[in-house]
Design a protein around this nucleic acid. Structure first.
Lengths: 211, 211
DNA sequence: ACGCTCCTTGAACGATCACTCAAGGAGCCC
DNA sequence: GGGCTCCTTGAGTGATCGTTCAAGGAGCGT
């Protein structure tokens, strides 16, 4: 009936997994909300677990066009781009009153152990995320110290994102997220100061914290 | 029959929630593994959701005696104590092949939205955790710059813990956790350098990264 | 218009879900 | 030893779980 049933199932499932979690979302609910019969869903996905994999692949395919691309276009400076990305997530969290959070992060904690088939797909999502950040950090060139471990720093950015969101969801406020981002900013400013980054406006000699 | 039924239920439930998640754990399973009948469980806890609250309170009560106390005893230096705590979690993760992770973090992402009654209890757990770290940071005195926002920094430590564990669970390896901790170390070393901390051995003038 | 493939329909399956409850034992006060 | 409270027993509730399947449309090449 509708144009692309498979895609509608995937997006509905993705939304419900994000809103309620994987285990708490019934196949019947997915079908109802997608306007599809159970047989139709099972035509495309042999099991609920396979649907989970499908959702994770969907996220993988849409990281660049939906998340990274727009940020990359809007913010030319590779270092500020990192904070633009964090601000983009922050705005999303704020617009839904600190609910839901990061879909990959949620699934990472819920199904990593119980669904080992899904683990590599979650890992790939994180890896791709970190790889983009790392490329930005490499674009920053000598504005960061030459001995900066940009892979480790990219993982730290992802860590701040996920750890900050987790605490903010529990608190229902973005304070913990903002605190963590401010510390990341202070750390990166300290690195830039050590590298002598000319674009760093230094009202104080070294790292400062926000708030 | 056994000495303390309520406690056995709580600890069994806590273990199963950690291993499989809240929604994926059935009440029948909890009863079987705790050696208890369903009626017994429902005598102490009016619902599965109430049991969840009970588990969260149990964690709240045991943070100091099980987690913070031992670390505090083992490591006198307040700054190194932070990394001793992170190392303690790391050892736990390593001993179970990067499975399970942090019980509070898991529940934070799984039930924050679907079980609003549980949210304040999760938040309190995080808050208590951060408050202890903050007290350690305050114990560090002028080994950190006077203008250091120790509340924000304590949240950053929690962020590194949770964000690092999340990625490590997905990857099945502790690399992302280690990367994040090394960046936190570099940041705190930079703060100590700026404060002129005499206990900081400086083989290089400023912040360095691990790995 | 036939046959073939792709997709949809929707009822039905057994298992498991959270939860209830009437009944009865264990311990203690009087 | 009667009565009271606290706790345990375990079968049973209806609802929902993930999944199956026989049947039949829709579209297309021939």
């Amino acid at each position: 009936m509708a144009p692309d049933t498979r895609d509608r199932i995937l997006q509905t499932a993705a939304r419900l997994f994000l809103e309620q979690g994987f285990a708490a979302t019934g196949v019947a609910t997915i079908c109802r909300e997608a306007g599809v019969n159970t047989g139709s869903l099972y035509h495309f996905f042999p099991s609920k677990d396979a649907l989970l994999i499908g959702v994770l692949q969907w996220y993988e395919e849409h990281l660049q066009p939906i998340v990274m691309g727009p940020v990359q276009e809007r913010e030319p400076d590779p270092i500020e781009r990192i904070f633009a990305l964090l601000a983009w997530y922050r705005a999303g969290m704020e617009s839904v009153d600190c609910r839901m959070g990061c879909p990959i992060g949620n699934l990472a904690l819920e199904v990593s152990d119980t669904h080992p088939e899904a683990r590599p797909f979650i890992d790939t999502n994180f890896h791709n995320w970190a790889a983009v950040i790392q490329s930005w950090l490499e674009d920053a060139g000598d504005r960061l110290p030459a001995d900066t471990n940009r892979r480790a720093l990219s993982r730290m950015v992802l860590t701040v994102m996920e750890g900050g969101i987790m605490q903010s969801r529990a608190a229902g406020s973005l304070h913990a997220f903002d605190d963590s981002v401010s510390q990341l900013r202070a750390y990166i400013d300290a690195l830039r100061a050590r590298a002598g980054d000319p674009t760093l406006e230094t009202s104080k000699p070294s790292a400062r914290e926000g708030e």
